Simulated scan of single mutants.
Amino acid sequence: MPSNHRHLHAFDLRSVVLFTSLTLGGTTAVFAQAAAPSTPDASAQPTLTAKALTPSEVFMRSDVNRDGQLSRAEAKNLPSVSEQFAQWDRDGNGQISLEEFLLNAQRHE
């Protein structure tokens, strides 16, 4: 009787892990522990605050193959960039460089 279990190849597993890390890693914010409060109350617990990523950090996280360019596929992780890819790709080469990304990010702030 044939087995109903599917064997997961290493490539498939790595793809799932990469997709999951990109999805859960997100580009919106990371949590950082706040500095100790300035009040003398030693029992006060530190709080978590959201730290926005810089445009350069967003670009680096989205550049999956680390070639210094965002392809259309890589830009899909950034919906606002993906929807306006042609406008962000100022030189029309089908890729968004860090320089193009930073120019557009400043315009959208």
Rank of each mutant, 00 (worst) to 15 (best):
M1C: 06
M1Q: 10
M1K: 04
P2T: 04
S3A: 04
N4G: 11
H5R: 07
H5A: 07
D12T: 04
L13P: 05
L13G: 03
L13R: 15
R14A: 10
S15M: 13
L18V: 09
L18Y: 07
F19R: 03
F19C: 02
T20R: 12
S21R: 14
L22V: 08
T23E: 10
T23D: 06
L24W: 05
L24Q: 04
G25I: 12
G25H: 10
G25T: 09
T27D: 10
A29K: 08
A29E: 08
V30G: 11
V30W: 11
Q33D: 05
A34W: 03
A34G: 10
A34P: 03
A36Y: 00
A36C: 04
P37M: 08
P37Q: 14
P37Y: 10
T39E: 03
T39S: 11
D41V: 15
A44V: 15
Q45V: 15
Q45T: 12
T47Y: 11
T47I: 14
T49A: 03
T49G: 00
A50G: 01
A50F: 09
T54D: 10
P55L: 08
E57F: 07
V58T: 14
F59W: 09
F59Q: 01
M60I: 11
M60L: 13
R61W: 01
R61K: 15
S62E: 05
S62M: 15
S62N: 11
D63K: 02
D63H: 06
N65T: 11
R66M: 10
R66G: 00
D67A: 00
G68E: 08
L70V: 09
S71L: 07
S71A: 06
R72H: 03
A73C: 08
A75G: 01
K76F: 08
L78D: 06
S80W: 00
S80I: 01
V81W: 08
V81P: 02
Q84L: 06
A86Q: 14
Q87A: 15
W88P: 00
D89N: 10
D89R: 00
N93W: 05
N93A: 05
G94Y: 04
G94K: 02
G94P: 07
G94R: 01
I96P: 05
L98S: 02
L98H: 03
E99Y: 01
E99C: 04
L102I: 04
N104W: 06
A105S: 15
Q106G: 04
H108M: 13
E109M: 14
